[in-house]
């Protein structure tokens, strides 16, 4: 470790990872600033809170939330599932797309309380263990993204689209994926990825 401490001050050290083709720096946190998981904010000073139980990726989460909390913020800030992205927070970009009872919705325009009692699936719940969902694998192979920020939403939407039977033609895929914006412009690659998955079943 010692000769690999690139930190000029040793404030936050970097450790070298030993597996996988990719890794980012892991932080050694001397002062306790970084946590393994985000915590729900303390409740004492916030306005009237309510208990909400969310069923996410087959796991139950009991939360105490401000009633104004959206499903997206509940996932990201309270449960620690940051796969669903906040792009516009106004339902216009699709980066926050998740499945509610199997249907694709934008989680930024859904109150967490409204999602109680419903089956929520996020990008983190798509793969079976280490095995990528075929749509995830197709996005990797067809390079269906660049920056990756819209990707979880694109994939959740794409999986739903195939289920809806809308993958029959390129034009249909394009129209029924138009709720998911990609500013890097990976659209042609995304269409190719979806076709490769839907190929046998459309």
């Amino acid at each position: 470790m010692s000769d690999w401490d690139v930190s000029r001050r040793g404030f936050l050290q970097t450790t070298a990872l030993t597996s996988g083709g990719f890794a980012f720096a892991q932080f050694v946190d001397r002062h306790g600033a970084l946590a393994a998981e985000p915590e729900a904010a303390p409740s004492e000073s916030a306005p009237a809170r309510q208990r909400v139980t969310l069923q996410v990726n087959r796991t139950s989460h009991e939360l105490t939330l401000d009633p104004r909390t959206t499903l997206l913020d509940a996932l990201r800030e309270h449960i620690g599932l940051t796969g669903a992205k906040k792009g516009c927070d106004m339902g216009a970009c699709g980066a926050c797309t998740v499945h509610l009872d199997g249907k694709r919705v934008v989680s930024c325009l859904t109150l967490a309380a409204s999602a109680e009692g419903r089956r929520i699936t996020t990008i983190e719940g798509l793969a079976e263990g280490d095995e990528l969902h075929p749509m995830q694998a197709a996005f990797v192979e067809h390079d269906g993204f660049q920056c990756g920020y819209c990707t979880p939403g694109q994939i959740m939407s794409a999986v739903a689209l195939v289920g809806e039977g809308r993958a029959a033609s390129d034009d249909s895929i394009r129209e029924f994926m138009s709720g998911n914006l990609c500013r890097c412009g990976a659209y042609p690659n995304i269409v190719a990825a979806i076709k490769s998955v839907a190929g046998g079943r459309a």
């Binding site: 946590a35 393994a36 985000p38 599932l81 796969g83 669903a84 992205k85 990008i123 694998a137 993204f145």
Partner: peptide, 15 residues
């Protein structure tokens, strides 16, 4: 990126 595991700035786990 396809599993949602890539952490962008607002997603860094800070206590």
């Amino acid at each position: 990126k396809v599993t949602g595991a890539a952490r962008y700035s607002a997603e860094m786990p800070v206590k």
